[in-house]
Computed example of a mutant assay.
Amino acid sequence: MTIDIRTFKIPQSVLVVIHTPALDVLLIERADAPGFWQSVTGSKDTEDEAFATTAAREVFEETGLDTRAPGHVLTDWGLENVYEIYPQWRHRYAPGVVRNTERLFGLCIPRPLPVTLSPREHRAQIWLPWVEAAERCFSPSNAEAVLQLPHRQSPQ
């Protein structure tokens, strides 16, 4: 008898738009889907993990940036998107799970910084002005989050 001990992803995640006060936005390219540019994303590790904890962990894992560093401000936007999980990634979730709830955050940092990517997750990085960044995002919910930046952050 074979026991399946796979751990499925929890269908609750974060999207963290990393940006500067001048509204330059960091995008990272997925390693498993070249050409798919996005902000930092990631699922909760446990059902009871706070979204803010997930956001800070995912930012560090995917970029090496510490959300608590001087001048860095992580903000929970208090918004959630519910969307259908892309078919190519449904195998990561329990059978029958097709929808994900995504909590939106912003991380404002003083200036564009080089980041340390996790090579198993991402292959490239780019800083772009917010409108160009929104146009480059493969995910409509990510693009919409980037387009909200002027309402969330005053340019300096």
Rank of each mutant, 00 (worst) to 15 (best):
E132R: 12
H151Q: 15
W130C: 12
G96F: 00
W127F: 00
S13V: 09
R120D: 09
D66I: 08
A22I: 04
W89I: 05
F51P: 01
I126E: 15
S39Q: 12
S13C: 10
T2Q: 11
R152W: 14
R57C: 08
T53W: 03
Y93S: 00
L26W: 00
D24W: 03
T75I: 07
G106F: 08
E121I: 06
R99W: 04
Q38T: 12
L23M: 07
H151R: 13
V73A: 06
P11V: 01
A33E: 15
A55F: 00
A52C: 06
T54G: 03
H72T: 02
A133V: 07
F60M: 07
R111V: 14
W77A: 11
L27Y: 11
P11E: 02
E61L: 13
A133C: 04
T7K: 14
A145L: 07
L128Q: 05
P112G: 03
P21M: 11
G64P: 11
H151S: 12
V82G: 04
I3Q: 11
S13L: 04
F36V: 13
E47L: 14
Y86L: 12
E80K: 04
Y83N: 07
P119E: 10
W127L: 01
T63P: 08
F8E: 10
S13E: 14
L27R: 00
R68Q: 09
P95T: 00
R57I: 02
E135Q: 13
L65P: 05
L147E: 05
A69L: 01
A145I: 00
E49K: 03
Y93N: 00
P95I: 01
R152L: 15
L128T: 03
R136I: 05
V97N: 01
H72W: 00
L149K: 03
R123A: 07
V25S: 10
T101W: 01
A55I: 03
E135S: 13
L23G: 11
Q156D: 13
T7C: 12
P87A: 03
I3Y: 09
L117N: 12
P21W: 12
V14R: 00
W89P: 02
G71P: 09
K44S: 08
S13K: 06
G96C: 06
C108K: 14
R57Y: 08
I3N: 10
G35Q: 03
R6Y: 06
R120L: 07
L128C: 02
W77H: 08
A50Y: 06
T116I: 15
E80M: 09
A55P: 01
A31C: 06
E47R: 12
C108M: 14
S43L: 05
Q12G: 05
G106S: 15
L117R: 07
E102I: 14
V59E: 06
A22Y: 08
T7L: 13
I126Y: 02
T54H: 02
P150N: 06
V40D: 03
Q153W: 12
E102P: 07
W130K: 06
I5F: 05
A133Y: 05
V146L: 08
T116M: 14
I126Q: 13
P129W: 01
L23T: 11
P155D: 09
H91M: 11
S141A: 11
A134D: 04
S43N: 15
T101F: 03
E58V: 01
E29K: 06
E135Y: 02
T2P: 11
L107K: 04
E58Q: 14
H122Y: 15
D45W: 07
H91T: 10
